[in-house]
Each structure stands twice: as C-alpha cells, then as structure tokens.
Amino acid sequence: MRIILLRHAESLGNVDELAYCRIPDHALPLTPRGVQQARAIAPRMRRLLEPGPVAAYVSPYLRTRQTFELMELGHLIERIVPEPRLREQDWGNLQDPVDQERQKQERHAFGHFFFRLAHGESGADVDDRVAGFLTELERRVDNDPAHPKNVVIVSHGLTMRLLCRRLFNWSIELFESLSNPPTCDFRVLERDSTGRWHMDRPFTQWRESPDGETQITQVA
C-alpha cells in the first residue's frame, strides 16, 4: 500500500488573511500562482502514481478540489472520494481579523494540539477524525480486493502532519515542533510486506522536540 499526501496549492487565504472575513474558509479559491503550482506538480504526481489504478481522497474544500482537478490525473484514478474528515482545522465561520490574530498568539503559547479555537476545533479534534479515516482506509485496502493499493490524499498542512502523527505514533511534543509543508508539497508513505510504514522524507522542524523524540520514517 502506498499513500501520496499532497497539500493544496497556494490559496487566497495564504496571501490575504483578510479574505477569511468575507469568504468562508471552505470556499477560498486558489490564487493564479496556486493554479500554476498545481499544474507544475502534475507531471511528478503522474510519475509517482503510474500505472495506477489510484484511489483519490480529497478534502471537500474548494482549494483542495481545484488542486486535484488541475493535475488532470483522470486516466489513473479509479475512484474519487470527497472526504470531510480530511478538511482543514475549523476556525469558525467568517472570521474577525483582530480576534483571529489574538487566538493565533494564544494558540502559539498554549500549544497547537490542545488549544481549542473559540468557534472551531483543537488540533486534538482533527487528530481524532484523521485517526478514524486512517483506520477505515487501511480496512478498505486490506479487505476489498477492488480497492487500489495506491492512494492519493489531497488535504491541508496541519491535517497532513496529524495524519503522519497517527501513522508513525509521534508524540504530541514532536508534532508541535514540526512545520507545515509548503503549498503543493507532498510526502510519500509506503507500507512494506511486514506492515511497516516508511516516509520518503521528514517534515521541517522549527525546534527540537522537548521530549527528545525524533521523526521516525518507519513504524510497525
């Protein structure tokens, strides 16, 4: 089994935080640069996924759907599943910029995993839903002969880190020491014949983990 984790291309929210005041998070589109990023990564995605078939699980947010569609992987994709559990951490509905900045500062001091946003989720909430998704995905691949062994997941930065935290049993301290991947960046996860998972490369760390744990690129 192999999973390609891909973060969406650059969206309006990545370059204009005030966009969240007038457009719901789920409806933020890609920027022109984001469109270019998605088209530019397409040949590499095709090489990674060929010859197929591939199952695609895509966050239902507009920016993730646009990223997936622009890559034009149709000839490789056997099934496409819109998966709400892969959505971005929920910050609430239309957001007030002053309150948003205050919450970001409090979240940084408190810790990104347990801090609950006033009208949204904590990182722990996202962790719970991605855990359920991973369990179901592995069950589908193992028990359904028709389900492709190659999977592409188009999601969001924090969601990608939490998917890996669950899969590799990282500590919360290590998770909070990792940076989100850049837009349109990806990780390749492979499960070998012994059931061990491997990741092609680690995430960038902005500090050492306080508990001394390091990223593990394989797990039983």
Rank of each mutant, 00 (worst) to 15 (best):
M160N: 09
R116Y: 07
L18K: 13
Y57R: 04
D96I: 03
M160G: 08
E208D: 11
S193E: 15
R39G: 00
R161N: 05
A56K: 07
H156L: 06
A118C: 13
Q37Y: 00
I77E: 08
W197T: 11
P84L: 06
N143D: 11
F186T: 00
T204N: 14
I41V: 01
L117W: 13
F115N: 04
G92R: 03
Q37K: 02
I4G: 05
Y20E: 08
S193Q: 15
E138V: 12
R107K: 08
R201F: 15
T204G: 13
L158N: 09
S155I: 05
L49M: 01
E173Y: 00
L86T: 01
R87G: 07
H147P: 04
E136R: 13
R129Y: 03
A118F: 13
S179Y: 03
E208R: 09
D90P: 00
G157K: 07
H108C: 12
N143T: 14
R33Q: 15
V98C: 07
F115S: 08
L94E: 01
Q103V: 05
R47Y: 10
S122P: 05
P84E: 08
S209N: 02
V98R: 04
M1Y: 15
T194F: 14
L73V: 06
H75L: 14
R140K: 14
L134W: 03
Y20C: 05
Y20S: 10
E208S: 06
F186A: 06
P29M: 12
T214G: 13
L62T: 09
I3W: 08
C164W: 08
E69W: 13
Q89Y: 08
P29R: 09
N93M: 07
R46S: 05
G132M: 09
D16R: 05
L18A: 14
P202F: 15
L6F: 03
D90S: 10
R196V: 13
N150T: 15
V188G: 07
P82M: 11
F113E: 05
D185A: 12
E88M: 03
L30P: 02
L5G: 01
V15K: 04
F175M: 10
W91R: 03
L134K: 04
P145V: 07
A109N: 10
L76T: 06
G157Y: 06
L5R: 01
S155H: 01
D99V: 14
P210V: 09
L49Y: 00
F186K: 06
A38N: 07
V154W: 00
S155E: 00
L28R: 07
N169Q: 15
D125Y: 02
Y20Q: 02
A40G: 02
G92I: 01
E190Y: 12
V130F: 07
H147F: 13
C184T: 01
L49K: 00
R7F: 08
D125E: 11
V58L: 11
